[in-house]
Design a protein around this nucleic acid. Structure first.
Lengths: 200, 200, 200, 200
DNA sequence: GATGAATGAGACTTCATTCAT
DNA sequence: GATGAATGAAGTCTCATTCAT
């Protein structure tokens, strides 16, 4: 019962969410969720703090929306590549796609790594779901590519996921960014190792 | 938040310090650094809040000491196994050792994963140093075990580190805890894959 | 928060205004003025928030209008009964009328009780005026009914007003709602007590 | 992880709660709970905002403590007077005592009036309990003083409570404060009225 | 060595109000 | 007449840190 509200001109209607997404992505990835305030995100997005709450209801659910947004993009790409008939080529395409994704949105990787499996994270379930979908996709392709016992296959999928996430993040923050090939090779080495195990 | 605590000085644990370490380890791993207050840690340790400051000077340097404490233990073990003559056996022993460590201190894994490479983390340097030492050890053993170009070897070491960290954490929080063999196999598949690449 | 709304102008209720009145009455009575937001009132009324401002200019003046609306109804009734020749019958009719009013609009009673005489309430003057008119009416009838010194008469009128307001509210929220007779008796006991004092 | 904490000297240990009580009592009574911020109360008490939370945990529970504090004082006094053998004298003493209490702590009356029976007030239960104890005391004395049917007696007790609360508040804010006698007479008129009803 | 009452900066959130459409 | 996205002041609360004891 006080506001005067004079000042900066309101931004175009639907812009706010996008601007907040973009700003969050940058800030949160660099410094972590707790080190970035809503104030700061709003300022970086060029909107008022109230707009964050008008659009997302809370800081946490804004981050949840951000996480979901990124997960959707990556999953869609991976699903597309997973359909390729040649399993090895499919896996390679998926790994490349994941690296490209982290290249584009390095902050997501940071966010995912930090929050995933934190027992009491607010996004724990959301991130678990996402992780499960990714590893399920990997397992599915692995299954038709190498002949190994299911339990090993399961763990191998997780290992590939972990290796990709961490090395992709590492690569993305290295300047100049190293060439992709070697990274893909390193991750796919797991697959070739499994083949040998299957053969041996 | 001055981030002294470098060089991993082994803490000579007074009673209070030990209690604080134990309490921190549990709480911080479950909920993350920012979600746990000094008050809560002190209460869980059965000491007063002032004692934290008396012993460590700040929350951050207490966490730094905690991180250093764990790093010391793990590195010492890994260094020991790295000396084994058979490279493959050495690697296997190292991986097993890492899994055992995460089993004992699951919270460390969480802490490391969350904070590592966070661009502006307070412990960034400390954790980078630690990471560098671990991967250097892996590289060193890999080098005398498989014949692959240096760049690939470097990335492979990182990939193994990442895969181990994430799958070990995943295993540690699964109940009942799955058997270790499969996990070790999955991580070592990378090595066998590299051998094939070297041979091919 | 300028607190215009004086003089109890009877609102010519548009559809929106009526809906807002009905919604406000319920919500404000249950939870108090500060615990209910304009957003919530608008939602409950099925109109947009802007409509509140379009119709009333501010939250405060909407509440002022609401208060005036109720005051008008009650005062009109009381004035009518006050004209009866038999003082005791007039008083009884007025008390019954007040109880019926609180029955119909239990939230008004709550609102009045809460805000009345709050030294710095925004509606303090408005409510004081209203209170003064009510007690003046009671005094006027009392004066021609019992023979007591003016000061006592003044206070007695206030006491009757207070007793009616609080017990009526209490009755209105009791389920099932108790019979009216006893309440009226209790309030009128004051009058009979005064008669005795006058006689003694 | 930032504070420097220089400035005002810390107040003597156990003082804080008392200072906060005194400051709250004044401010809250004048302007109502929602119109007074914790900041303001702390400033008026000469302590920092954090001290409020250190001592009471929340604004609401501080108010709860304040309410309980006052209720204890008043109830103790009333219980004492209720024991007197002469019912009429007991009632008079109780009413006088209540008026004196409101004189000393006019803000309590305001607080009680505002919050009591607000359906969803945080202190609803607490205040209901308190009210129940007071009216029980009045009923008990009435019962041995006048011969009236129980239901009427119940309501009469409530009516006396309401009349006392509202007129005492009214008196306390009038300057110069009017003499007490007339108020006591007005409230006790109810009792005499009941006697007449019993006799008639 | 240890305590815990006190601090104050700063976090998240609410909400009355405005205004372009 | 009516809408709802946007605003920003102000509120409640948290918590790392200090210091007299």
């Amino acid at each position: 019962m006080t506001g005067e509200a004079v000042g900066r001109p309101r931004v175009r209607a639907t812009d706010s969410k996008e601007r907040l997404f973009a700003a969050s992505m940058t800030l949160l990835g660099h410094r972590g969720i707790n080190a970035v305030s809503v104030d700061e995100i709003a300022r970086a997005a060029g909107v008022s703090k109230g707009t964050v709450y008008y659009n997302f209801g809370s800081k946490d659910s804004m981050i949840g929306a951000l996480l979901a947004f990124g997960a959707d993009i990556l999953l869609e790409e991976l699903e597309q590549y997973a359909e390729q008939s040649d399993g090895l080529q499919a896996l390679e395409a998926m790994v490349v796609s994941a690296f490209r994704f982290v290249e584009r949105y390095p902050s997501y990787a940071q966010l995912w790594i930090s929050e995933q499996q934190r027992s009491e994270s607010l996004w724990g379930e959301q991130l678990s779901d996402f992780r499960e979908q990714i590893t399920a996709l990997i397992r599915q392709v692995l299954r038709r590519t190498v002949q190994v016992p299911e339990p090993l296959l399961q763990v191998a999928a997780s290992a590939m996921f972990g290796a990709t996430l961490l090395t992709a993040r590492e690569r993305a923050v290295t300047t100049p960014m190293p060439r992709l090939e070697v990274y893909v090779q390193a991750v796919l080495a797991t697959v070739h190792g499994l083949e040998r195990a299957a053969a041996g």
